[in-house]
């Protein structure tokens, strides 16, 4: 049974339909990528999962239908790092991290995860008291991931983590995500404009076109897929 399953999900902003019947699944311990051009519905797919857009169809998580309120989705242990990272710029790094654990009650576990996050991202430990808005782009990306991990998520949703970052920083970031996946078995659904990077880092992928799944398969298959190569990989 997949961890997350979308069945015929549609989503709309006012009169505009952004998703028209998307079927998609993420298994436990998988990294799944969602590719597509601008406006294909990648971001909306994530928003449909976390209920920050009006949806119809079924979103099933761990065998149960997900409630349609973002705060309830967060409580189901789905961490969503949105476009622009959703960092609380005016709050300190420390406060951002503690907010990540808002839905948890296990003090001991929170403390342990807090320490682990600082170990994993030493730069954050140096900047604990600083307002998050003063961090560099790469540091903010680390903070966003660290904050998501404080939720101890069963599923991590990442929206274009590579956007606006230097290639070196992006490579480090994806290495970190892969490591999380391999070591801790964390399931990840990542939306990415940079197709070659996403395919290299994921086990399966979906290609969206105008709100529908156009192609789906394992990442190696898609890397070889004729039209995917031409449209998204550029060779």
């Amino acid at each position: 049974m997949p961890l997350l399953e979308l069945r015929g999900v549609t989503a709309r902003y006012g009169a505009l339909r952004a998703l028209q019947g998307v079927d998609l699944s993420v298994d436990e311990g998988e990294i799944v990528a969602v590719l597509g051009a601008n406006g294909a519905g990648k971001t909306t797919t994530l928003r449909a999962i976390s209920a920050t857009v009006k949806t119809s169809g079924e979103v099933v998580f761990a065998g149960k239908r997900l409630p349609r309120r973002p705060e309830a989705v967060a409580r189901a242990r789905i961490a969503h790092v949105p476009e622009g990272r959703g960092t609380f710029m005016q709050l300190s790094v420390d406060e951002n991290l503690r907010l990540g654990a808002h839905v948890r009650r296990d003090r001991v576990g929170i403390k342990a995860d807090y320490d682990r996050a600082l170990e994993r991202f030493p730069i954050l430990a140096e900047r604990l008291g600083q307002a998050a808005g003063t961090l560099s782009g790469g540091e903010q990306q680390q903070l966003a991931l660290a904050r998501a991990l404080m939720q101890r998520p069963r599923l991590l949703l990442l929206d274009e983590p590579s956007l606006g970052l230097a290639p070196r920083v992006v490579a480090d970031f994806y290495a970190g995500v892969r490591e999380l996946n391999e070591r801790e078995g964390m399931s990840v659904l990542v939306v990415e404009q940079n197709a070659s990077l996403a395919l290299a880092s994921s086990s399966r992928a979906y290609v969206l076109e105008v709100g529908r799944v156009a192609v789906a398969g394992t990442s190696p298959e898609l890397q070889r897929h004729e039209s995917v190569r031409r449209s998204y990989l550029g060779y």
Partner: peptide, 24 residues
């Protein structure tokens, strides 16, 4: 307090707060 922090976060960035699980 945790609640106080959540209230500040909700005031600063409601959208992101909801994703964090805060009942804004």
């Amino acid at each position: 307090t945790k609640l106080g922090l959540a209230m500040r976060a909700a005031a600063l960035n409601p959208e992101s707060s909801r994703l964090t699980g805060i009942r804004v």
